[in-house]
Design a binder for these strands. Structure first.
Lengths: 351, 351
DNA sequence: CTGAAAGCGCTAACAG
DNA sequence: CTGTTAGCGCTTTCAG
C-alpha cells in the first residue's frame, strides 16, 4: 500500500459551498435572476445571463436539488428507488440496467438495494427510500402483503412491482409468465420421453416459486401423469442447497430421468451435482432463467430464458408514465419467456 | 395483460402528506417535541412521547430527510453515489454489493450508475449526484483527468476511486494489483512451455488495460522473450470484438499457442472462438477476472480472480472513515488477485 | 422538560 | 425584464 501525502491539501479545512445567494452577490443581480438562469427560464437579458454564468463558474456553484424541491410546486426529487433480489445477481443486474437506461434519459437518479428475500429488509429499505422522497418505487417484494404501501401510494408516490406480484394493493406490476413457461419447460421434457421429472424449486413463500411449481404440476396433470409420480423439492435458495438436494435425489431409490430447475442458482447447483455424479449426459435438465455461459457447457444448458432487461425498462416506463400523470387502470404486465433448446433438455431417458 | 380496475381508489386525488407540524397539532405539542421524539433525543416525558408516537402512526408520518438536512449542522444526507462499469456486469455487481453491505449497516442509501466507459457519462453522472448532495462518491472513472473534482473534494465531499486510479487529484483509491497479476498470468503460460502468447486487451485509454498490458510485456521481457515476438491486440471491449479478434488471429500466419485474455468479456469471446475453431484443448488460455461458471467448462478456464466484493467493501469503508472525520493521508489500496488453475491455462504447446 | 422564533437554499407569487 | 417577499419541512438556538 503506497501513500501519497499532501500536507498542503485543504483536506482539513473545507471550503464553503457556494449558494445561489453567493452567485447573485458576485454577479451583482437578484437571487431570482440566478434561479432563472440556472433553470433555463426565459426573460433574462443576455447581459445578466452572462454575468450569472460567469459567477456560477467562478464559484463552482452546484444547485441543491433538494433545497429547491422543498418549495417547488411539482415536488419531484427526480429520484426513484429500485429494490431487486440482489445487485450481485445477474438477473437483477439486467433489470437494474433496464431501469437505469430509462431513468437516465430523464435525468432521474436511481437508488438500488438488495432484498435478499428478507421481509425485514423490505420494510427497512422502503422506509429509507420514502424518507428520501423518491418519486417512484420499483419493487421486488417478499412480504406476504404490500398493503402497508397504500397510504404512500395515495400521497402520490408511484409504486410498480417487478418480477413478483404484490398482495393487498392495487398497482402496476411487471412479471414473467412464470406458470406458462414452467409448463412449457415441463412439456419439453415430457415430449422427449420423460415421465419421471424432478422439480427443484425455491422457497414457496415466493410468488414466483409458487407459480413455477404450479406450471410444473399442471403440465404433469395435463398429460395424465399422476401427482404421486411427481418429485418436488422446495425451499432451494442457492446453488449449494440445490447441489445437495440433487445429490440426495440420486442417492435415493427414486432417481428421476429429468430435472426442471426452477431458478438460476438452482440450475447451477443441479448441473454441478450431475457433473459430480457423471450423469450430465444421461439426465436431462431444463433451467428457469438463463445462466451465464450456459451455451458453452457440455452439454449446453436448455433454459427458459426471461427478459430481465425488458422487464426493467417496462417497469420504469410504467413508473414514469404515472409520474407524468397517466391515470389509466393499474395493469399486470406479463412478459413472455422463451425456451432455448441447447442440448441438456433434449436428452432422452435410457429405456 | 390483465387489468385490475378500481374506480374507488384515490389514484386521482392524492392525500396530503403529513408534516411534523401536523403531527404536533394532532398530538397537542410543540413541533420541537415531535422533532425530539422522531430523532430519539432525550428529555421528553413519557406522556408526550406516547402522544407523539400515536399521532405519528395515525398520520402515517414519514420524516423528510432532505428538509431536515437543510438546517442540520452536520449536513449529511446519508446518501452516497456509486459509479461502476455497468450495473449489468457481474464484476460491477459484486463491487456494488460490497458497497451496499457497508452502507446499509449505517443506514446510508446508494445511488448506482453505469459508466459504460463513456467520458461524457462520467461528467453527467457525477454532476447529478453532486446536485443531490451525496456524502461520498465512489467512482470508476474513464476521463483522463479527475482534477475537476478537487473543488468538490475541498468542500468536504468524500471521493474514493475504485478499480481504476485517478489522475490530477489526490484521493483514496482501491484497485486490483493489475500489473503483477497480469505478469503472473503470463508467467504461468510461460511456465507451461509457451513463448508465443497473445495478449487480448481492452482499450488503452483505460488505466486497468494499460496496467495489464504492462504486466504482460514486462513478464515477456523478464524471461527474455523479445518484444518483437509479442502479439498484442488492444481495443477489445466486449465478447463480440474479442471473438472476432481471436478468429482473425488464428486465420493469420502467426497463430499463438496461448492467449492471455485481459478482461472478463474478452475471455468469453476468446473461449467462444477457440470452441468454434475446435482449438479449446490445443491452445492455452488464461483470463483476467473470473467468469461465471468458468469452472464447469471443458476445459475449465484458468483465471486470475479479482476480489470485487472486497474491493467494494474496502472502498466504502474508506469513504465512511473519511465521512467520520478520519484525516490520514490518502492511500492507494491494492488488493491481490489470485491465479486459479483449472485446466485451460495448463495446456502445453504442441511441440 | 417544553416550545417559540429564526433560518437552511431554494422557488412561487407578486410587485415594480 | 428584474427583484422582493414569503415560506417549503425541518433543526437550531434560546427563552421559559
Amino acid at each position: 500500500m503506497t501513500s501519497m501525502s499532501n500536507p498542503e491539501s485543504s483536506r482539513t479545512t473545507p471550503t464553503a459551498r457556494a449558494t445561489m445567494r453567493d452567485v447573485a452577490a458576485l454577479a451583482g443581480v437578484g437571487i431570482k435572476t440566478v434561479s432563472r438562469v440556472i433553470n433555463g427560464e426565459p426573460n433574462v437579458s443576455d447581459a445578466l445571463t452572462a454575468k450569472v454564468r460567469l459567477a456560477t463558474e467562478q464559484l463552482n456553484y452546484q444547485p441543491d436539488l433538494h433545497a429547491g424541491n422543498l418549495k417547488r410546486s411539482d415536488r419531484k426529487t427526480r429520484t426513484i428507488g429500485l429494490v431487486v433480489g440482489s445487485v450481485a445477481n445477474p438477473f437483477s443486474g439486467l433489470v437494474h440496467r433496464g431501469v437505469e437506461d430509462v431513468a437516465a434519459d430523464r435525468g432521474v437518479a436511481v437508488f438500488a438495494s438488495s432484498l435478499d428475500d428478507d421481509p425485514s429488509r423490505e420494510t427497512r429499505i422502503v422506509s429509507e427510500m420514502l424518507s428520501r422522497r423518491v418519486d417512484a418505487l420499483i419493487l421486488t417484494t417478499v412480504k406476504q402483503n404490500q398493503g402497508y404501501l397504500i397510504p404512500e401510494q395515495q400521497r402520490g408516490t408511484v409504486i410498480v412491482f417487478v418480477d413478483r406480484q404484490p398482495a393487498g394493493i392495487d398497482a402496476d406490476s411487471v412479471v414473467t409468465n412464470n406458470a406458462e413457461a414452467a409448463a412449457a419447460a415441463t412439456a419439453h421434457l415430457i415430449d422427449h420421453g420423460h415421465r419421471s421429472i424432478a422439480y427443484l424449486g425455491d422457497r414457496v413463500d415466493l410468488w414466483t416459486a409458487r407459480e413455477r411449481r404450479r406450471g410444473y404440476f399442471e403440465q404433469l396433470a395435463a398429460v395424465g401423469i399422476p401427482t404421486s409420480e411427481a418429485i418436488a423439492v422446495d425451499g432451494l435458495h442457492d446453488d449449494q442447497t440445490s447441489y445437495e438436494a440433487t445429490m440426495r435425489l440420486f442417492s435415493s431409490g427414486s432417481a428421476p430421468t429429468a430435472i426442471f430447475a426452477a431458478q438460476n442458482l438452482v440450475t447451477i447447483g443441479a448441473v454441478r451435482a450431475l457433473r459430480q455424479l457423471g450423469l450430465q449426459r444421461k439426465v436431462a435438465i431444463v433451467g428457469f432463467d438463463d445462466i451465464p455461459l450456459g451455451d458453452l457447457l457440455e452439454p449446453a444448458i436448455t433454459v427458459v430464458s426471461q427478459q430481465p432487461y425488458a422487464i426493467g425498462r417496462l417497469a420504469a416506463t410504467r413508473a414514469f408514465d404515472r409520474i407524468d400523470g397517466v391515470d389509466s387502470d393499474f395493469g399486470l404486465h406479463v412478459l413472455p419467456s422463451v425456451l432455448v433448446p441447447r442440448g441438456s433438455g433434449e436428452i432422452r431417458p435410457e429405456q
